[in-house]
Simulated scan of single mutants.
Amino acid sequence: MTELAVNNPEFEVQINIDGTDQTILVKPEETSDGAAYYRCLLQGKQLTQIREDVKGEWEQLWGSLVQAKVNAIGKAIKEKQIS
């Protein structure tokens, strides 16, 4: 098990998608070179994979969400980690 998985277990965030509040399961992952990213699942299906870049902006690695939704998920992840 990677250090990231031990220190950052999966967690849930609540966001509004298309006018409906949704619970997204977030699974912190790590690339082979140690870069953190987040697998996001909605109702058991992978919705997207995102990461925060060096400028603090959220980018989508996998999926087809519009940038506003990627940003909303990223914001919810960041808020959850701070609390």
Rank of each mutant, 00 (worst) to 15 (best):
K69D: 11
Q81A: 12
L41W: 14
D53A: 04
Q49D: 12
D18H: 01
L4H: 00
L4G: 00
I50Y: 10
Q60V: 13
K27Q: 11
P9W: 00
L41F: 09
E30K: 07
V13G: 01
A36I: 11
G34Q: 06
I73D: 13
E59A: 15
T20N: 01
I17S: 02
K45D: 12
T23A: 03
I73H: 11
E12A: 04
D33L: 11
T20Y: 05
G19Y: 02
I50W: 08
I24R: 09
P28W: 01
N7I: 01
Y38S: 06
L4Q: 02
V54Q: 06
G34P: 13
E3T: 15
Q14T: 00
L42Q: 12
A5D: 07
L4A: 00
Q14H: 04
Q49V: 10
L42D: 07
I17N: 00
K78H: 14
Q14D: 02
P28E: 09
Y38Q: 01
L42C: 10
S64C: 13
D21Q: 04
I73S: 10
R39L: 08
V66F: 13
C40Q: 04
R39Y: 04
E29I: 04
Q60S: 13
K75T: 11
C40Y: 11
E52C: 12
Q67R: 09
L41G: 01
A35T: 11
N7P: 00
N8I: 00
G34M: 05
G63Y: 11
P9H: 01
E10N: 04
K55D: 14
K69W: 13
A72P: 00
K75E: 15
R51Q: 10
Q60G: 15
E30M: 10
K75R: 13
D21L: 07
I24Q: 04
G44E: 14
I82Q: 14
Q49I: 12
L4D: 02
A5S: 08
R51P: 12
E79R: 08
T31Q: 06
E29D: 15
